Computed example of a mutant assay.
Amino acid sequence: MSAVKFDEGRLMQILLAPIVSEKATAVAEKHNQVLFKVLRDATKPEIKAAVELLFKVEVDKVSVVNVKGKTKRFGGRLGRRDHVRKAYVCLKPGQELNFSGEAA
């Protein structure tokens, strides 16, 4: 696998959280993709290696989107939400991701 050339400690920190929303569910059903919130400096090869290492699945490709944080008002002051980097991870045909941690 491609996880050999990366530091395993770094790979364990790349994926911050899965994104569970209506859009993420629709993408998962239609294109066999899973969405993750990842570190802002994570690269596509690192994301691929991290998913393969943590979930023991084969990844076909990775697409990333950088989302700028919205400017919001907090009380009387202006503030900004954090910037987010999302990773659309496309799994190879026949692969399935199980978030419960149980082996199939």
Rank of each mutant, 00 (worst) to 15 (best):
G94S: 08
G76K: 14
K86H: 15
Q95L: 08
H83T: 10
A42H: 03
L11E: 03
L54T: 00
K44V: 02
S100H: 08
S63K: 12
A26Y: 07
K61Y: 07
A87Y: 08
V64Y: 02
L15Y: 06
P93I: 13
E22Y: 05
L16Y: 06
V89K: 03
F6W: 08
Q33Y: 04
L16Q: 13
A24I: 11
M1T: 14
R85G: 10
I19T: 12
K5A: 14
D60I: 00
P93C: 09
L39D: 03
R77E: 08
V64I: 14
G79T: 13
S63A: 10
Y88T: 03
K61R: 06
V27S: 14
F55I: 02
R80M: 09
V51L: 03
V59C: 01
E96I: 13
V57G: 02
F6P: 05
K92W: 07
H83S: 07
Q95K: 12
F99P: 03
T71K: 13
I14D: 02
G101T: 06
L11R: 05
F55V: 02
E96H: 13
F55S: 00
T25F: 05
L78W: 14
I19Y: 04
R77M: 04
L91K: 07
A3W: 12
K68I: 11
R81A: 13
S63N: 12
H31E: 08
F36Q: 03
H31L: 06
M1L: 12
N66R: 07
N66C: 05
E52I: 00
E102T: 07
V62Q: 03
L97Y: 07
I14W: 04
L91A: 07
V62W: 03
G79H: 11
L53R: 01
R85C: 13
V84P: 07
A42K: 02
R10E: 15
V62A: 01
L15A: 05
V59Y: 04
C90A: 13
Y88Q: 03
A17P: 01
L35I: 09
F74T: 13
S21Q: 09
S100K: 13
E29S: 11
E8N: 07
E52D: 00
E102Y: 04
Q33I: 05
D41G: 00
S100G: 07
V62I: 06
E52K: 01
K30P: 01
R81Q: 15
A24P: 06
V27D: 15
D82L: 14
G9N: 15
R73E: 09
L78Q: 15
G76T: 08
V20L: 15
Q95M: 14
